[in-house]
């Protein structure tokens, strides 16, 4: 959706996890690299652990130790 005063770009900040920004976006990183995405919303990594920085790859998620209860050790 084009940016305009009637339709400003919507950004959503959650408790944790990524910053959600309406696409398309062009992101300039600290090292000068530029990443572009035309997805309807992009998730920008805030924890800096992402292996596809600046995009979120869910690396912010809490990690469970072996033996700690987790439904997802079988996926």
């Amino acid at each position: 959706m084009p940016n305009s005063s009637e339709h400003p770009c919507r950004i959503t900040i959650g408790d944790d996890g990524p910053l959600l920004v309406e696409g398309p976006v062009e992101v300039t990183c600290a090292d000068g690299t530029v990443a572009v995405s035309d997805r309807f919303v992009v998730a920008l990594c805030m924890c800096r652990r992402s292996r596809m920085y600046p995009w979120c790859d869910t690396s912010h998620r809490r990690r469970t130790q072996p033996g700690e209860k987790s439904r997802r050790d079988t996926g």
């Binding site: 809490r62 990690r63 072996p66 700690e68 987790s70 439904r71 997802r72 050790d73 996926g75």
Partner: peptide, 14 residues
Amino acid sequence: EGLLVEPIRGSGVS
């Protein structure tokens, strides 16, 4: 919440 945690080591297919 159970889906939103990741084990450090898992045992599944992936």
